[in-house]
Design a protein around this nucleic acid. Sequence first.
DNA 1: CGGGTGCGTTCCTGTCTTCGGAACGCAGCA
DNA 2: TGCTGCGTTCCGAAGACAGGAACGCACCCG
Lengths: 259, 259
Amino acid sequence: MADNDVEGGLKSVASALDLLDCFVEEEELGVSEVARRLGVAKSTAHRLLTTLASRKLIEQNPRNGKYRLGLHLFELGSLALARVELRRHSVLLLEELRELSGWTVHLSIAQGADTLFLERLPTLRGLQAMEEFRRKWPLHATSSGKAICAYDPEAAQARIKAGFPVFTAHTISNEAQFRAELAKVRKQGYATASEEVMTRLASVAAPVLDNHGVALAAISITGSVMDLGQHQDRQVRLVTMAAKRLSTSMMMSAAQLAD
Amino acid sequence: MADNDVEGGLKSVASALDLLDCFVEEEELGVSEVARRLGVAKSTAHRLLTTLASRKLIEQNPRNGKYRLGLHLFELGSLALARVELRRHSVLLLEELRELSGWTVHLSIAQGADTLFLERLPTLRGLQAMEEFRRKWPLHATSSGKAICAYDPEAAQARIKAGFPVFTAHTISNEAQFRAELAKVRKQGYATASEEVMTRLASVAAPVLDNHGVALAAISITGSVMDLGQHQDRQVRLVTMAAKRLSTSMMMSAAQLAD
DNA sequence: CGGGTGCGTTCCTGTCTTCGGAACGCAGCA
DNA sequence: TGCTGCGTTCCGAAGACAGGAACGCACCCG
């Protein structure tokens, strides 16, 4: 029931896409449940599901007749990712960072008011607790998100507008706190987060900037709070250096394109 | 122009999904080009693209007005993958296999007449040459594909029907050769491929079987042809063992579900 | 057993969505 | 300056699509 119609959009296609989004929260849904969520008749939901299933964007579980996301989405999604320029420039660099830091490495961008993790190179030390890895978190809850917001007013504004849901006792929970944190990040040149999204987890992030000084992305490393204390200086140095290298690498390729 | 209409399907939604598939082959396409490929009017293509873009399944490049796959596809695709049961049971096991074998590890399933790589744990030794990693290859060209076909007549049939495109001098190129190879795989219990999709690359694969002895997936490792000669026996043993372990793990969870 | 309730699926009919064609403004090019 | 391609917008006619009702099927519970 959101803004179901964009100017010049197709209603049935829009419904089909909204239908896909229903499966973000729920792993499996039946026809009736989907119809309820979309606010359409059961027959309509059934038609949509059938069509999506014919292209494998949705698959039907023969066990119980319910539907779930299809693997063709995985195929298309992998392509979308593989074609992101940031990723192309960063793979080796991130691998090196994992090696040196010993922590789990992330590459992330802002997507609306959220942090979207594009890449994740896990290590056992960083993996713990994060078993069910989520690709999307609110920008204010992750070190990556804070690093991006500090250098991208648009992203920061989007998060302010969307509010500040709380995950742990340490999560940023209001605008004033958020703005203060961003100022601190700008002063330091990097962002940290300790148990802000999950207890026992700590992370350090640095922004990847374009030639206007606006954040394109962030590189972060995640480990346990206990490990952070001992090696903080070194970890910060590693992350900032990696982000700087990626920044210049992106700028050089942008300059080439401009020719 | 394929089977654009499924029984009970929505035409405009089907077009939208076919539109997405246009971007499998091409990274960027303009409105006119898309219209040409779909066989629809330019205005129709524009409407479809606008609607898809409103949900970020498609993104427009502000540089040149052309369109490309959007990152929301990556989000949905990641979810689809994360929910595949096979994957859940295999992650640790695959990591161990990478450690022990020193080669790049893949988990793959059959999708129509193709091998679809669900998981890939790269190593430097296995990575070389495969820079631009493709998620989908014809079943007859990969060791994984052959391991699956040997224990899944349906997949084998799909490949026979689709024909045998050739990639190198060693690629299987006709049905007789294919059937002979599958017989050999069944006799051995594992499959190999040497320079069948790319020169210098060799791989070993073993099938993951359900309780009827039909292949659900395959586990494979990939390295250079040179390395294979020395350690073949050991590599074969590692892969077969990993696949067996995954098989029993899947069977046990299936048995639980049946209760 | 038998009625009740949920499910996924199917059919039909009226209406509102969607389609193609034509025209626009804008580049780049000769 | 005219040509040709692009992405975008507008419109009216044609027909695809939405909703509602009904079906067959499991399941549950009295």
